[in-house]
Simulated scan of single mutants.
Amino acid sequence: MDRTHSSINSLLEQATCIARRSKEAAGETESTEGYKRRQTEELIKFANDNGLWIDLSHLNITYMDRGGENEVFHDGNVSVVKLNNFEYAGDDLENFFIRIAAHNKFFGNVPYQMIGFAYNSQQEFCAVLVQPYILAEREATEDEIAAYMQALGFEMDYYDEYHNSDYEVFDAVPNNVLYGIDGDLYFIDTQIRLRNRDN
């Protein structure tokens, strides 16, 4: 499938809808663990039906690192490729898609693009994300992160956690936020979730 066509540019939105519809179809009759299993099955079917599997052997990338949810590769030029195993989505994959869309809204200078699906080295089903490779002078400081988040309209809860009326951003620590050689801050790997309205 040609990933330059608009249908592929909306892959994130399509996958979000599939995850949401799958959860709604399950209703209250299924455990929360069942949501994630059903959502994964639907996304695998979606990948099969639309040729959305990414063969990493066909990409000119080099392994960089592995974290709690991502295997990270570099193309040696301008992009980082992340295989995200949905670990931090909890029992509902929609949380992952909400997070990626919110990241792109708030941190648009280092956006994610979802290009398909793959299995990582642990044979876990993953979303394949591409993100710009940032030329960094250093990690951002806590004070720089706090000032940036406050400028976006977020209030600080803890040194690495912030909220506005709709979202919570956490894990905004120096090793997840880079100070670019251009003097801008780049939030490359924070966690974002919808805020509990009871807070």
Rank of each mutant, 00 (worst) to 15 (best):
Q113N: 09
Q113I: 14
M114H: 00
I115C: 03
G116F: 00
G116P: 02
G116V: 07
G116R: 01
G116Y: 01
G116L: 05
A118P: 00
Y119K: 02
Y119W: 04
Y119S: 03
Y119N: 06
S121H: 09
S121K: 09
Q122R: 12
Q122Y: 07
Q123Y: 09
Q123W: 04
E124F: 10
F125N: 02
F125D: 01
F125Q: 00
F125L: 03
C126D: 06
C126M: 01
V128L: 03
V128Y: 03
V128G: 12
L129K: 08
L129R: 08
L129C: 06
L129Q: 06
V130S: 07
V130K: 06
V130H: 02
Q131H: 05
Q131L: 08
Q131Y: 03
Q131N: 09
Y133G: 09
Y133K: 15
I134E: 03
I134V: 15
I134Q: 06
I134F: 03
L135Q: 13
A136Y: 11
E137D: 15
E137K: 13
R138I: 07
R138P: 00
A140S: 15
A140D: 10
A140R: 02
A140V: 13
T141V: 06
E142P: 13
E142N: 14
E142C: 11
D143V: 13
D143A: 15
E144V: 11
I145T: 04
I145A: 06
I145V: 09
A146R: 13
A146K: 13
A146M: 07
A147R: 13
A147V: 12
Y148G: 00
M149Q: 10
Q150W: 08
Q150L: 12
A151T: 14
A151P: 11
L152P: 00
L152I: 09
L152M: 10
F154N: 10
E155V: 14
E155Y: 01
E155M: 11
E155L: 12
D157F: 05
D157N: 10
Y158E: 15
Y158H: 10
Y158Q: 12
Y159T: 14
Y159W: 14
Y159K: 14
Y159I: 15
D160L: 07
D160E: 12
E161N: 08
Y162E: 06
H163M: 02
H163D: 04
H163R: 08
N164Q: 10
N164I: 08
S165C: 04
S165F: 00
S165A: 14
S165H: 04
S165T: 13
S165M: 04
D166T: 13
D166K: 12
Y167W: 15
Y167A: 02
Y167G: 02
E168C: 14
V169S: 05
V169A: 07
V169Y: 07
D171Y: 02
A172E: 01
A172M: 05
V173G: 02
P174W: 00
P174Y: 01
P174K: 08
P174L: 07
N175Y: 10
N176F: 07
V177Y: 09
V177C: 07
L178A: 08
L178N: 06
L178S: 09
Y179N: 10
Y179I: 02
G180R: 09
I181K: 07
I181W: 00
I181G: 03
